[in-house]
Every structure is written in structure tokens, then in C-alpha cells.
Design a binder for these strands. Structure first.
Lengths: 135, 135
DNA sequence: CTAAGTGCAAAATATTTGCACGATC
DNA sequence: GATCGTGCAAATATTTTGCACTTAG
């Protein structure tokens, strides 16, 4: 990946941690993962680098779940599912078209705007949490 | 509206303020609107009531834009557009189907979850902001 | 030498909450 | 008089930032 050239060791480690999980973690989770192997890592550095990654187009914010920003290094367009009980964030695989292919044009025309991106999030209970609910 | 019965004067005012705007405001905006006419209103009360409304199903959180939660009293399912420059939030009118009608079933099956709600947000530049951009 | 990356702690921001008081039923 | 709603201020929680120091080129 071109943009990754000349990354510092810490920046590299933060990116790799993010890229190697599908949990759509918070900044703090990334920090906790790395802290044991990089004892002099600071949380501020993780925040700063996550901002850098967003600017470089290497990561996206999936959304803010329970007040915490959730990050994803998978830049392919895909919806997410958020379990409102355990707050886990799951990728929704796309096997058929979710949205109308001219949707950006439609929104642009209807709203008089320029559309550059979108985000789809489903909410509900994941498998484990549904069982734990009592109705 | 059934659930609105027996609302206190302040709760009523907060709801009405929210219901009478399409700006998808923050808690503070609602507070600022009401403060002149209700001088002894406190911001904590606005927050508390917005939480009450969410629990009663009278409002929804559109999302968190720039760290601030944006509220909507229009409970009909509709996407939103967020201008990443001025941070305005606009309703996207639905004139044709955006999403596959069996989408919840699809997500449920693919992810092994129960889907109860969803949220679609488009990002880009609104009309005014596009003009102000220089490319 | 210069610019970039970082630790640390303080600051900034948004939201929640404990407590006492007042209103409502 | 019990419950609910509230003001106020303190507390929380998350994220950002200033500053000094280090490191890489």
C-alpha cells in the first residue's frame, strides 16, 4: 500500500492492529492491544494516527456507538450491523445489490447536493444477545 | 399523540421545538431556542428529556455529527444527508425504493442476527458549501 | 538542521448524574 | 405525601492539543 511507506514503527503497528481485526474497534481497544508489546505507547498517539489514517483514506469511521468512535480499515463499501445490547459491530456481506445503483444521482438531484459517500447501519440483536434477552 | 399526554410544560416545549424543525438539531440548539422564552430552563433538562423521547419512541438519533448527537422527531424511515463542510443534516425524500424490501431478512440470515432498525446516511457537500469550495 | 512523530498531562467537549427543591396528582 | 420533573453544579467520558523531547532523513 503506497500510503503506508515510511510509516513509523508505531504508526505501522497501529495500522496493522486495525487492519487485522474485524471487530471495528475503538481507539482505546487498539491502544490496549498494543500497549503490552509497546509499553511506551500513548493513547494520544493512537488517536492522532487514527486521524492520519482517515485523512489518508486508509480507514473509515463506522459510526459512534455508545459515545465511542468505531474504526474500520476495510475501505470496501459494505453495511454494518450493530448489536444494541453488546455493542458489537459486524460486517454485512453484500451478495446482491442493497441500494439502487443511481442512488447518489437521485440524492444529489432531490437534495441539491453532491454525494461522495454513504453509510448503512442496521441495528438489532446479535445471535448471542438475542438468547440472553428475556421477552 | 398518546405518549405526549401529561407532559410537563418544559417537556412539551422541548418536544415541540424538536418537532417543528427539520434541522436535526443538537441538544444545545434546542436549549438555545427555548432559553429566551423559558429563562429557567437548564441544559440537563433538555438532555434528560431527549433521552425520555427516545425511550418513548418519539425521537430518533440521526447520528453523531462532529461529536454531537443529532435528533429527529420525524420517526418515518428516511435517509439523511450530511454536509461534511457545514454539518447540516438534510432529509432525503423517498420517492422510490432505496433498499431491497427483504433486506432485514437478508441481513438476519447472513449475519445470524435479529434486525430491528436501520440508518442510511449520505455524505457530501450541500449546495451552498459546494460553491464555497475551491477545487 | 529540519520536519515528523511522540509521551505526557492538561484542556476541551459533550453528556450524565447526584442532590435538593418544587410542582403535580 | 409520593412521585415526577427540574436547576445547578460536579462528575464522567472521550477526544484533542500544547509543549518539550526524540528520531529519521
Amino acid at each position: 500500500m503506497q500510503a503506508k511507506r515510511n510509516f513509523s514503527a508505531k504508526r505501522e503497528a497501529i495500522y496493522e492492529t486495525l487492519a487485522s481485526t474485524k471487530s471495528h474497534p475503538t481507539a482505546e481497544w487498539v491502544y490496549d492491544q498494543l500497549k503490552p508489546s509497546i509499553p511506551d505507547l500513548s493513547l494520544g498517539t493512537v488517536y492522532r494516527n487514527l486521524t492520519v489514517f482517515k485523512e489518508l483514506g486508509l480507514t473509515k469511521c463506522v459510526g459512534v456507538v455508545n459515545g465511542k468512535e468505531r474504526f474500520d480499515a476495510d475501505m470496501s463499501q459494505h453495511p454494518h450491523f450493530v448489536c444494541t445490547r453488546c455493542l458489537s459491530v459486524i460486517d454485512v456481506p453484500i451478495k446482491r445489490n442493497f441500494v439502487d445503483c443511481n442512488i447518489y444521482d437521485y440524492v444529489a438531484k432531490e437534495c441539491g447536493v453532491t454525494v461522495e459517500d454513504h453509510n448503512i447501519v442496521f441495528y438489532g440483536f446479535c445471535n448471542g444477545c438475542r438468547e440472553k434477552q428475556d421477552f
